[in-house]
């Protein structure tokens, strides 16, 4: 990466992307900034409001509650999906026809439109027509995620595990198959236990893909909108209202443009900070990995 020639003419290649993304990102974002510092009494008359909306949003319980809910949600699904994904990836076959079968079937939930994912689970969890709800009802458990916040959380988490664990599996698997056979032979000669093979060979080799998986899962769960919106609509009450749902409610539902815009910017800044962490991790690991490999071989 360091021996690339320096040539500013390369900008001509990047220009189409720059223009396209600038139009679809910067201009809309400027509208948001514009709204965030102004107030309106209707009739398209705006006046300067300064940082009023920002203080209002930052001090509101509503924003803080959805932020806390969203962070809790992200933490829970990471705690479930990462270990589960590693376990499945470790147990997957490494060669033969079953590899393709596993990969295709596991990737299937990733390609279903997000609101269809919501619909699938909406149907699946209903006590009258859904398999899960019906089975639980037969077992004497009253399952109604429209009434109980705990059950709403359980079904949303279950849905997310169903939807996204495969991503972790696929990434971990691709990290695992990249481990040379010689490593395992050496471990066998040393008489290493199954745990030691995992701890000292497989885990370090999966480190990079695992980091990508954790960061991607964290960020995507932080922006989750469609699936819980279809499934619970943010209810019962506000118990499953995550940041995106809250934002859309404020902006399009109540048309409170000022607070919505301020909230968008705060939200976006949090994401920006996380992106920076992600970027630093990815680029640093990308630089380290080839050098390390050369030293090892």
């Amino acid at each position: 990466m360091n021996n690339k020639p320096f040539d500013n003419k390369a900008w001509f290649f990047v220009l189409p992307v720059f223009i396209l993304v600038a139009i679809s990102a910067v201009i809309p974002l400027m509208t948001v900034v514009n709204y965030s510092v102004q107030d309106s009494f209707g009739n398209n008359q705006f006046f300067w409001a300064g940082t009023e909306w920002f203080t209002e949003v930052l001090n509101s319980d509503r924003f803080r509650d959805s932020l806390v809910r969203n962070l809790t949600f992200s933490a829970i699904i990471l705690c479930i999906e990462i270990p589960l994904g590693i376990a499945v990836a470790l147990a997957m076959p490494r060669k033969g026809i079953w590899v393709s079968v596993c990969l295709v079937l596991m990737a299937l939930p990733l390609l279903i439109p997000w609101n269809v994912v919501g619909t699938i689970w909406l149907i699946f969890g209903r006590a009258d027509i859904g398999l899960l709800g019906f089975t639980l009802a037969k077992m004497g458990i009253v399952f109604n995620y429209g009434q109980s916040w705990l059950q709403a959380w359980i079904i949303i988490i279950l849905m997310d595990v169903w939807h996204w664990t495969s991503l972790v599996v696929l990434l971990c698997y691709s990290g695992l198959v990249a481990i040379p056979e010689a490593y395992y032979q050496a471990a066998r000669i040393d008489g290493a236990s199954r745990w030691k093979v995992f701890r000292y060979i497989q885990l370090p080799k999966m480190q990079r893909v695992l980091l990508i998986a954790i960061l991607l899962r964290f960020m995507d769960s932080f922006m989750i909108y469609t699936e819980p919106f279809v499934l619970t609509g943010g209810g019962p009450g506000n118990t499953t209202t995550f940041l995106s749902i809250d934002l859309v409610k404020t902006a399009i539902g109540q048309f409170d443009l000022g607070p919505a815009a301020a909230m968008s910017l705060i939200y976006f800044l949090i994401v920006l900070l996380l992106s920076w962490v992600f970027y630093t991790v990815m680029t640093n690991y990308g630089m380290d990995a080839p050098e390390k490999r050369e030293v090892e071989s």
Binding site: K4, F6, D7, I27, V32, S244, F278
Partner: peptide
């Protein structure tokens, strides 16, 4: 190639991949 602002540009592109669609819906 390396060019003026390449790393910043690359990072800026990534932030758009990570941008919440909810923020952009109304604008």
């Amino acid at each position: 190639y390396r060019f003026l602002g390449d790393k910043h540009m690359f990072f800026w592109l990534l932030t758009n991949r990570m941008a919440p669609p909810a923020v952009f819906a109304l604008p």
